[in-house]
Simulated assay, not measured.
Amino acid sequence: MAEVPRSPRPAGVTARRYLPPLALCGFLLLLALVFSVSYAVGSAAGPVAPGMHGTGGSGGSGGSGDGTGGSMEDMPGMGHGSGG
């Protein structure tokens, strides 16, 4: 049986086979855009509560974030070993 010479594939077909579908690329682009816009809006709005502060690197002081330095032991009924 004689071999029939195959025609070489066009250059675009080989490269296109390894690329993700166009719909997936569009979805990922839309997702990145939505996250970027939501981040920008959140940054412009600022903190959600008056006493909230970012993680400033204070090293975990155990305070409640409002400057009072309170902890769970300061709450009524939260003492260690109080049986009742």
Rank of each mutant, 00 (worst) to 15 (best):
V34C: 03
V34N: 04
G59T: 02
G12F: 05
A2Y: 06
A45N: 05
P8Y: 10
P10L: 08
G77A: 10
G57P: 00
P76G: 00
V37K: 02
S43L: 10
F35S: 13
S7N: 13
S71N: 09
G54C: 08
A44C: 07
G57T: 01
V34W: 01
R6W: 10
F35Q: 08
P5H: 00
L29R: 02
R17V: 07
A49S: 13
H80D: 13
R17A: 15
R6L: 13
Y39A: 13
L30V: 06
G79V: 02
F27N: 08
G62F: 01
S61I: 13
R17K: 12
P20E: 10
G70E: 12
L22M: 14
G57A: 02
M75K: 03
H80R: 15
M75Q: 06
V4S: 09
D74Q: 04
A40T: 09
S43H: 11
D74V: 02
S82M: 13
P8C: 12
G81V: 03
A45D: 05
S36W: 04
G12N: 15
S61T: 08
V13P: 00
G12M: 08
L24K: 05
V37R: 01
S71G: 11
L28S: 05
C25T: 13
G69R: 00
G60N: 09
M1F: 06
P21K: 09
C25A: 12
S82L: 15
L33I: 06
G60F: 01
Y18H: 15
E3G: 03
G26H: 02
A2C: 05
A15N: 03
P8A: 15
P10A: 12
P50M: 07
V37M: 06
L24W: 14
L28G: 06
A32F: 07
S7H: 07
